[in-house]
Design a protein around this nucleic acid. Sequence first.
RNA 1: GGGCUUGUAGCUCAGGUGGUUAGAGCGCUACACUGAUAAUGUAGAGGUCCGUGGUUCGAGUCCACGCAAGCCCA
Length: 1108
Amino acid sequence: MKYPEYKNPDYAKIADEILAYWQENNIFQKSITTRQGKPSFTFYEGPPSANGTPGIHHVMARTIKDIFCRYKTLKGFQVKRKGGWDTHGLPVELQVEKQLGITKEDIGRKISIEEYNQQCREAVMKFKGEWDELTRKMGYWVDLDDPYITFDTKYMETLWYLLKQLYEKGLLYKGYTIQPYSPADGTGLSSHELNQPGCYRNVKDTSIVAQFKVKGTENDYLLAWTTTPWTLPANSGIAVGENIDYVKVKTFNPYTFEPVNVILAKERMDAYFNEKARDLKVEDYILGDKLIPYEISDTFKGKALVGTEYEQLMSYVPLAKPAFTVIAADFVTTDDGTGLVHLAKTFGADDFRVLEQQGIPGVMVKDENGKEVPIVNKQGRFVSEITDFANMPVKNYDDEDENAPDYKSTDVKIAIKLKEENKAFKVEKYEHSYPHSWRTDKPVLYYPLDSWFIKTTAAKEKLVALNKTINWKPESTGTGRFGNWLENLVDWNLSRSRFWGTPLPIWRTEDGKEEKCIGSVAELQEEVAKANTAFASDTTLTEKNKAALAKEDLHRPYVDDIVLVSESGEKMMREPDLIDVWFDSGAMPYAQWHYPFENKETFEKSFPADFISEGVDQTRGWFFTLHAIAGLLFDSVAFKNVVSTGLVLDKNGNKMSKRLGNGIDPFSTINVYGPDATRWYMIANANPWDNLKFDLEGVKEVMRRFFGTLQNTYAFFALYANLDGFTYAEAAIPVAERTESDRWIISRLNSLIAQVDEAYAQYEPTRAARLIQDFTIDDMSNWYVRLNRKRFWQGEYDKDKQAAYQTLYECLVTIAKLSSAIAPFYTDRLYRDLNNITGKESFESVHLANFPEADNQAIDKELETRMELAQSASSLVHSLRKQHTIKVRQPLSKILIPVLNEDFKKRVQAVEKLILSEVNVKDIAYIDDTSGILVKKIKPNFRKLGKQYGPKLKAITAAIAGMGQDEINRLEQEQQYEIDLPGERIALTTEDVEITSEDIPGWSVAREGDITVALDIHITDELRKEGIARDLINRIQNLRKDTGLDVQDKINVRIEKSSELVDDAIRTYMDYICTETQALTLEVTDRLSDNFEILELDDMQLKIKITL
RNA sequence: GGGCUUGUAGCUCAGGUGGUUAGAGCGCUACACUGAUAAUGUAGAGGUCCGUGGUUCGAGUCCACGCAAGCCCA
């Protein structure tokens, strides 16, 4: 049995093979069953919607999910992960509308709701095949055989159960919010509809700066600006900015010329007062003059205005305190208007929010049922209570000719009235952007619409407190984005007026006085039975009820048909709304198990989740709904750890979109570069929560640099291990008995295990990937293998060789395990290629193995430091050789290393041999102080001195810089040295400075950190000959390779006599050359006649002939 | 308009608790090395650490105000 050797590894192909292996051997299932009885680690899958094709960002998000599930499995946890599909909601509906070429209005007319929903049900799984394929090909392990599906009746039944729980706790109520509403269409508009092109249009409207009289003053007025004068009768508050500067200005009303004191933001004065009137005196004003003088009589911050009461502007509907009070709001600016904002609670979302917070009521009237309604009806007309304008449309909804000479809009009529009453300070046309219905082109109003809410605000404190126990990655998303959101929580608006979704399970009598919330299918059946008994005489009704129930489907339209009976015997109809689809996904911890109807125990064991991960855009989506439902109903968090991932952008940092065509197809990427490199690149390149600029060049680089190096190292190992028959059959050689470099790489390996384990445990996969990558490339390949190459291909199969194999084997297997969570395919191949030969472990796959444990005994920090020293020393010698253009093949006699203390010397000595062989030098000479040739450099220890002396540091630095060699020596000998500062003397110790060797006069030196190296570049004849011998070996090796000889082929070499120097070199190093080149004979002949090759050696030419 | 994030070499990114020569990889240039060879080493070029103020003996790092990009929400 041999370790498989690969010529040109195709990583995509490897992945396919491994995938097949997993499938045949049920590796995923085994990764769960083999952990039976172990502590469980719960992961919740945020359900994707399969109505679109998956993109490259899904690979990113799912890689993160997969990594931690795999990691925890290796750590011995049982990690069940149920897949799921999000199936309801607007995107599906819009897609179907588009597909059928219909609009929302056509549903229930041109197409029945039943048929429409059937279309949705089919459309939503349209791309399930692609999703499953991606899941499989990218190696995302999730259980797709038994997924939860949000349109499933069982799933929906759990939603009803949860809603009923909320209802019974009094957390589900009917209220209203201010939403875009089109009176012309008689319907509300979704934000999606509002985002239709052409919806926002520039229109000229009448704007009014109204004068609100401050209570208890003679003629002090608050100036508030509005572009919707029709909302003025509904005014019940005014908002100011707390930190904005306001002024009180003495002037005259430009329409009535009455003297007034008006209050507005200082910055806005220019807009309302004529510069030319600045120097006029208020006292000198002649009534009726166009140029109106003004004078600032007071200045104050907005804060001072808060609480000011004023008189109602248009008193059609009286209102009690605290209405008509000035409040502070964060949305007030001085960009336009007056810096005071008129608030109409029923006609602005901001207005509603701040007034609600302050407990200020809105201007409402009672309708015929005694229900409170706004002063504008659903047709967009003033109600009768607004006597002067009763029944007038607030916008031009009657298609009147606006260009007619006598046309006056309602806004204008209001303006005229206010002017006459000394209540308008300025009236003008104002052009602004205003939303219009995309159907009728008529202006949209912001209007209170009925909605069902979950009273999340009731649990705000709890939700905030629970959030603090969640480990957020990154932390700022939890404390900032999510935390702030919770702090400013508003009630969750559940209502959606759509068709494809979970219906609200609430039935109401027509007068709204009695209602019932249904919490299960069984309950619905009971209630239907009751109703059918109560309304037995109405067979149409009872038959409909029966038919609807028989469908066993909780969707519309069936549930709409069901009529229930109230306590008092009234008919109850279902509230027509659907619930927000976010409730669907937020309820998945319960609904995926059909809790509490089934799987109670399973649910309890898997709640809350240990880990979830989704895009940061889910903060107010899934993350919130999970948190809210768990907090409200279960007094618990829904998840303990969460990684919110950033966006995947194109390589230029632009959002990927179908329109721009800059999207990356995940399938082709995986097919070309393989899933491992794709996954590794995404993880190693940037932290998952940072946006990723996805560049295929980066994937290529990862493939070459990391996987290429790892594969190369394996290939190297396999090549020689196969030749030597290494199968790890021998007992492991104790680490203490292995070479310095073996112990070093093992120490580094164990340090790596500990660091990688910690990185994963802290949900920092990027750190883990980078650590593994650096170790593989720098430590294992470029240093350990390079230094130890000879041990693998030279000499007998002795202990030393076994130690080398064992050491490298250990490294490779460990890297396979550490990386397996990120690159599951290649690492499984690597692991099994190695382990199948040695049989060290009995696992069928790396994913069934255990995470390596760091052996602290094997970690030797001192050794790691020493090796760093060897690396920098070697690098310095290489650099010196480079300067003098002396190739490494040419041996040199010695290097000098200055040593300023014994510790340093010991360290270098320990790695002396390594350095010498690495740089091809015969000897190291250590020079210390006593040699008297060192030039030293002194530098202040800023960290220490700074703390101690602070401001005096500049003077001290100057004094130290002035120290010569004698002074430095004295400091070192006496351990103390006094320097003069202006006015005082300071004693320095050796701790206060850093002394390094700067130079060795007459030598060529190089420095890096605290190590200095000098190189003896004199080449003796002896060295020259050895250099020639090495050159010759190199040329012969090249020749062997070029002629296609195998590594083990023995050869005979004949070389034509040339210079004495070369002949001498060959004679002297005959044995050496023969051993290295596997030559049986090597002779120098007078003349080579035919079939010879010419070797270039420095400036010489050699004729050579190689035969088998 | 608000909240959050990001800004360091041509590109992608590192740079605990402030410490005096700001690093790596890729790319570019040159040279070397060569039973790991579609690999490797060394060197060079390339930086107003987004800007402006401030704190400090000392700021890429801390503070304030901006600018730019992104996400979410109005």
